[in-house]
């Protein structure tokens, strides 16, 4: 089994929204970033993987098993952080440790206390109610890492954290992925974070996969071209992925290979690639 996660032609229809036949493959040992605007289908995809909502079509394989068949056992090896804190407010760290010890067979108490110390979570009787948003996120991440997780599903896990904390969390993810059996799927708006750690990027837009490729290939493939409107008119339009025109000229995302060398092409960041892809040509 090479893929940690395999979605094939997965669809889900809601009133006013369609997740349309999406295909995603996350190889073992890799980190995949899921990008897209609000409402593009990122959370829906993660919910479908966990079977929190029923899908209309397609198959989903998680860690080699069909997610409709033996999900309970598979979930022992999944760590999940959802986009909102879901802890009952009356619990403190000790309570949570006691509960998780009785839920996960592979719960690692020592690891849990290590992470909570590292994340500076209050080990006194402070309850979740008194936690800040960032602390709740850190708590969820600590739990996701404190059992035998082979796959992390993180829905906006780093949003709401300050840059220093985000960097700290990214380091934790890098450590986690040292073991080649492990993989991470994380959705985020913060493309700079994804650019730092992801191997693969999947871009969802209005319920469709726009692309799902290796990050390095993407960054290699595209560039930002700045030129005048006259120059732009001469360019092979198949090379242009999207453009932005103003009175000073044109900025366009282009495929570098299809361009000849007479143009100056800047490096395209993930954010450029994402924004230009959804701009009409």
């Amino acid at each position: 089994m090479k893929q940690a996660l395999e979605l094939k032609k997965v669809s889900k229809k809601y009133e006013g929204f369609l997740l349309d036949q999406i295909d995603i493959e996350l190889p073992r040992g890799c980190i995949m970033g899921l990008i897209g605007e609000n409402g593009a289908g990122k959370s829906t995809t993660i919910k479908l993987i966990l079977d929190l909502i029923s899908r209309d079509n397609g198959t989903i394989m998680v860690l080699g098993g069909d997610n409709l068949e033996n999900l309970k056992a598979i979930k022992e090896n999944i760590g999940v952080v959802l986009d909102e804190s879901c802890f009952p407010e009356n619990l403190n760290l000790w309570d949570i440790n006691r509960i998780m010890k009785n839920i996960y067979l592979t719960w690692n108490e020592k690891l849990f206390w290590d992470y909570t110390t590292r994340f500076a979570l209050p080990s006194d009787k402070k309850t979740v109610k008194e936690y800040s948003h960032g602390m709740k996120m850190k708590l969820a991440i600590a739990i996701a890492l404190s059992h035998d997780s082979k796959l992390l599903l993180l829905d906006e896990a780093t949003s709401g954290l300050d840059p220093v904390a985000r960097d700290e969390i990214l380091d934790v993810f890098r450590e986690f992925i040292q073991d080649e059996e492990r993989s991470i799927l994380l959705s985020s708006h913060i493309t700079s974070d994804l650019e730092k750690i992801c191997d693969y990027i999947t871009f969802l837009h209005k319920g469709k996969v726009v692309f799902s490729e290796q990050k390095d290939d993407l960054l290699e493939k595209y560039g930002v071209l700045k030129c005048s409107a006259e120059e732009f008119a001469k360019i092979d339009s198949s090379a242009v992925k999207g453009c932005r025109m103003n009175e000073f000229g044109v900025q366009a995302l282009v495929e570098k290979q299809k361009m000849n060398n007479s143009y100056v092409i800047d490096r395209a960041g993930l954010e450029d690639i994402m924004l230009y892809h959804i701009k009409e040509k």
Partner: peptide, 21 residues
């Protein structure tokens, strides 16, 4: 009611817990 307020169910179901449980 507590669970509903905290949205605990969907989180619990991301753990080795079945709906039947």
């Amino acid at each position: 009611a507590y669970d509903e307020k905290a949205k605990w169910d969907k989180y619990a179901l991301s753990m080795p817990v079945s709906r039947r449980d």
